[in-house]
Design a protein around this nucleic acid. Structure first.
Ligand SMILES: [Zn+2]
Ligand SMILES: [Zn+2]
Ligand SMILES: [Zn+2]
Ligand SMILES: [Zn+2]
Lengths: 153, 153
DNA sequence: TGATTGATTGATACTAAATCTCAATACTTT
DNA sequence: AAAGTATTGAGATTTAGTATCAATCAATCA
């Protein structure tokens, strides 16, 4: 497996995204460091404007344009995923390139990446009945994480 | 089953949403009629601004505010669903109250509602390993519908 | 080292989506 | 008819996100 779940810690994400930037021929500048640091430290999914607000207090880090640019790049490269959202702004969560799903805790907001996927097997009969040729899917899971259940219930 | 798929035609959706408005104590005004008519006739998912653009040519139907208000109500009541979208604006598809999924054709854009759902069974072992208590999920399917495959390929 | 080159930044202007406001209007009930 | 309530819509406003472009920075080369 390319990215065993045990390795998918925020710290590892932080190192891997920096390496990915370099591999893509992009520079690891000070503004980009600050953004990656903030994302790696985020306890829950976040919006671009949250990053803007968090970093604008730290004088001289990253402008709105730089933040939006890097978020777009990270998303396109698979290091962030945009969550399904009722709201008007995009919500991002740390991610890993490839096919994964996210389990979001409704209590603490933490997002866990799940690499296993058996969705298409289960839904195959229904799709066959519709004569629909499946090419991809989006799946997000909502519930309560073990940590929240043991600590506050 | 509350809404057998065979009954989920646009015409039926049109009648049922009008009844739902009445049941909720809301009035079936002329502007709302025009919006429901347009949505019932839509061949594919659409944005609020598409409705605005389509109806503003018909002089004297529905203002932007009325359109946004009704779309919000229909979505909250389960008669529209917002699709996962990379873009900036929400994309809506006709829906039915309850738990369903959408299969969107990447070629013609048509959206088919699927009432069957065996997602949670398949993913249960992986979630148990994470000690995650599942409460809900969002699943959208992408592919090519039978109609598109037979007619243009 | 200093020059060259091209990537990167960020202030600012801009666009477009979505919401808000509130007086005017249209129903419904008594 | 009068009173009371729901609805509308024009326009102002907010806000997310994009575009611009001169100034700056960093990597490589002479
Ligand atoms: Zn939690
Ligand atoms: Zn999957
Ligand atoms: Zn199709
Ligand atoms: Zn389901």
């Amino acid at each position: 497996m390319a990215h065993p779940e045990s390795d998918q810690t925020p710290a590892h994400w932080r190192r891997r995204t920096e390496a990915a930037l370099r591999d893509a021929g992009l520079r690891c500048t000070f503004p980009r460091h600050a953004i990656l640091d903030w994302i790696a430290a985020a306890a829950a999914p976040f919006t671009a404007e949250q990053v803007v607000a968090a970093l604008e207090t730290q004088h001289g880090t990253s402008s709105r344009a730089t933040i939006y640019r890097l978020l777009d790049w990270l998303q396109a490269a698979g290091w962030l995923t945009r969550l399904y959202s009722d709201g008007t702004q995009h919500t991002y969560a740390r991610f890993w390139p490839g096919h994964h799903h996210i389990a979001v805790c409704l209590r603490c907001g933490s997002a866990t990446i799940m690499s296993e996927c058996h969705i298409e097997e289960g839904i195959r009969p229904a799709l066959a009945a519709l004569d629909f040729e499946l090419q991809g899917h989006v799946l997000e899971l909502y519930g309560v994480c073990g940590n929240c259940r043991t600590h506050s219930n």
